[in-house]
Design a protein around this nucleic acid. Structure first.
Lengths: 210, 210
DNA sequence: ATAAAACTGTTGCTTTTGCAACAGTTTTAA
DNA sequence: TTAAAACTGTTGCAAAAGCAACAGTTTTAT
C-alpha cells in the first residue's frame, strides 16, 4: 500500500519519546504477534513482508492476509474468536510500530509525533485496509479454483501493470491464501496452461487472456 | 454495529445545510447505489437492512456484505474491478446518508454538523467495518460447507447471546452469502440435523454444540 | 381473494476438489 | 559442503460440492 507520505524519513529519526508506542525489529520466520485479544494492539508494518496465518483444528493452514509495507494489523481488528490460533509471521526482516489502541481513542497527551502521525493518517490507513479486505472477499467468494487463480493473477497483473509477474509467495502459500488444496490447485494450473490462459515458469506467471 | 452515539436523535433534526451530504430514503428492493467507480461515494446506513450483491458472468449471485444500522459502504471502499456488477439493494425501507469522499479529505468548510460527525467518528466506523470484513474472511476461508454453516451459526449465536436465533435472511440468501450452492447447503443442513449439531425450523436455528 | 412469484426441501447424477503418496528440485542451515 | 528441509509437480482414488429438476409451501402484489 502506498501513502502520500514518506514513512522512511519519518521513521529514521525515531526517538523513543512515548512509552505507548514501540518500534521493534523481527527477523525472518519470527512470530511478530499472536492474537490473544487482550492487549488491543494496533501495528503498522514499516518494512518487510509478513503473513497473518491461521491454523484450524484439522491442521489446515490459511494465510488470512499477506502484509507488506505500510499495512496495518493487530488485535484491534478482531473480535474474540472461538478457537483457531491467529499469528503474524515475518516472511523476511520486518520493522513494526506497535501502538496500544486505547491510546488512540484517548489521545496521546505528550504530543508524541507517532500519535500525531496516527491521528492524521488513521482514516487513510484503515481505508486502504478495507479496500484490501474487499478484494480478498471478492477472491474468496469465487466459486472454483480456476476463477480464484485467474482473479488473483488479474489482480497482480493490474497492480504491477504487467502481464508477467512473479508471485509474492510460494505455490504452497498461494494455495493456503486461496484456501484450496495445493495439489488440486497445481492440477488446475496445468489445465490453465493447457488451455492457453497462462504461461508459467515456477513462480513467474504470464496472463494470456483478459 | 453499535456506536457509542445516538444516531437517531442526531439524524432526526436534520437540516440540509451542506450540499455535499444527502439523506435519502429507499423502499424495499430498491437499488441504493451501484459501484461504478466515479463518484467516490461514501454512505452510512442509518436505518434498515441492505445487501451488497455481485452477479458474476455465470449468473451466480453473491451477497458480498449484509448491511445493517450504522454500517458504512460505497465506492470509496472498492478499487476499479474488471467485470462483475456490484449493487446495494435495500432489503427493507432504508435511510442512507451519502457523502462524497473528497469532501472528507479536504474538510467541509461550512462547519456542517454531518461532516463534523464524520470527522469524529470515521475511525471508529471504519474500524468496525474492518472487524466485520475480517469475520467475513474467516468464514469464507473455511474449507467445507459444514464448517461455513457452523461458523456462521456460532457467530450469530455469539452476537445474540442465545443458542437459538433467526437467520437475518432467507436460506437462498444464506447460500449466496456463504458462496455455496443452495441445494448442497440444504443437504449439509440436513446432515447437521441428523448428527444432532443443530435443530432447525425454517429459518430458526438452535446450535446444539460448542 | 387469488394468481404469481419466491422460497424450502429433496434427489440422482456429474464435476470438482481434497487426500495421500511419492519423485525430483531447490533452498536452508549447520 | 552437504544433509535436511521445504517446495514443485504429478497421479489414482475418495469425498464433497455443484447442477438440474421438481413438488410443496409461503409470501407478495393486484
Amino acid at each position: 500500500m502506498n501513502l502520500n507520505f514518506d514513512m522512511d524519513s519519518f521513521i529514521n529519526d525515531f526517538e523513543h519519546n512515548c512509552h505507548r508506542v514501540q518500534k521493534k525489529t523481527f527477523s525472518k520466520n519470527e512470530v511478530i504477534t499472536t492474537y490473544i485479544q487482550k492487549r488491543n494492539q494496533f501495528c503498522i508494518l514499516i518494512s518487510g513482508n509478513a503473513d497473518l496465518v491461521r491454523y484450524d483444528l484439522n491442521g489446515n493452514r490459511t494465510i488470512v492476509e499477506h502484509l507488506s509495507k505500510n499495512d496495518i494489523f493487530g488485535e484491534v481488528f478482531y473480535t474474540v474468536t472461538t478457537n483457531n490460533e491467529l499469528l503474524v509471521e515475518a516472511r523476511e526482516k520486518c520493522e513494526v510500530l506497535i501502538y496500544i489502541y486505547d491510546s488512540i481513542h484517548t489521545k496521546c497527551r505528550s504530543n508524541c509525533k507517532f500519535h500525531n502521525f496516527l491521528t492524521e493518517n488513521l482514516p487513510e490507513l484503515i481505508l486502504n485496509k478495507v479496500i484490501d479486505l474487499n478484494m480478498r472477499v471478492e477472491l474468496l467468494t469465487k466459486r472454483t479454483i480456476r476463477e480464484k487463480l485467474l482473479g488473483y493473477f488479474t489482480l497482480l497483473s493490474t497492480r504491477t501493470l504487467n502481464k508477467t509477474f512473479t508471485l509474492p509467495f510460494s505455490l504452497t502459500d498461494l494455495a493456503d491464501y486461496l484456501s484450496v488444496d495445493r495439489s488440486a490447485m497445481m492440477r488446475e494450473m496445468k489445465l490453465l496452461k493447457e488451455d492457453g490462459c497462462i504461461e508459467k515458469n515456477k513462480n513467474k506467471i504470464t496472463l494470456k487472456i483478459y
